[in-house]
Amino acid sequence: MTVVIGFEGSANKIGIGIIRDGEVLSNPRRTYITPPGQGFMPSDTARHHRAVILTVLKEALEQAGLKPADIDCVAYTKGPGMGAPLVTVALVARTVAQLWGKPLLGVNHCIGHIEMGRLITKANNPTVLYVSGGNTQVIAYLERRYRIFGETIDIAVGNCLDRFARVIKISNDPSPGYNIEQMAKKGTRYVQLPYTVKGMDVSFSGILSFIEEAAHKMLASGQCTAEDLCFSLQETVFAMLVETTERAMAHCGSQEVLIVGGVGCNLRLQEMMGVMCKERGAKLFATDERFCIDNGAMIAQAGWEMFRTGQVTELEDSWITQRYRTDEVEVTWRD
């Protein structure tokens, strides 16, 4: 048996999870929630993580019913993400790895999402749509790499949604995306927005600028409601994501889609992707907020796969990096 503890804190969530051979033993998490209209800044987010990380670590061990001696490897997020929060989490991971005499393993955050999605859904070789506040990528596995077939050329889809939420002061609790999703259900009128698919890539900054510019005028004049805007924004950006995912599937001859990342728990996105999959006779795999949204277990799971193929990270090589592309990682654990 191999037990891996995973530390994640690359954005506004801090999570620590423990995995034993594909079984999630514990996965506690805390979220740094800012007031409506405000985003999360790196130094404030790091302060939040510092304040709670040791409590979360205690919970992770207690819920798993394990002692440090039972752990085989300490995995942590090496990147990509915000520098200050990443350092905070890496410091604790490095320190406990040394205190407990365990090997350390730096994990790519995006790979964590993919491997957790594969573990939970049992998808075999899916085309992956990875959508979150910091990343938007269409990925397929080929010859020891998760290759990026399409991606955003500017901001992530989740960033577009989060920043729209700030414009019309939607609550960030539990997350702006969740609240947009609930409001969108009450939207009745579709407001035309730019549709920006560029080949295999997508762009969201223009859509955001458009809606930032138009929102207050349209709301003040009664042209549409905030709910209509939420609905229209979701329909537009999700259609773009479904289109590029479908093209990647056609290219790879894939019959499976896996949606991962925080935006992936949006049920409307899952529904739209499901319609496309049904038309193609393909299968859709998705997970719920426990595993879609950043969490520690996903880092533990990717770490487990890496550790089993003999990978470890020496302390002196354990620096964090804000930029770390999905296709930089050699996938040593798949054929």
Partner: peptide, 18 residues
């Protein structure tokens, strides 16, 4: 930021050293 990091490490040692 060094002092923030240092105090986090010392706290970690206090709570999680075998």
């Amino acid at each position: 930021s060094f002092l923030d990091h240092l105090s986090l490490i010392v706290e970690t040692m206090d709570l999680f050293a075998p």
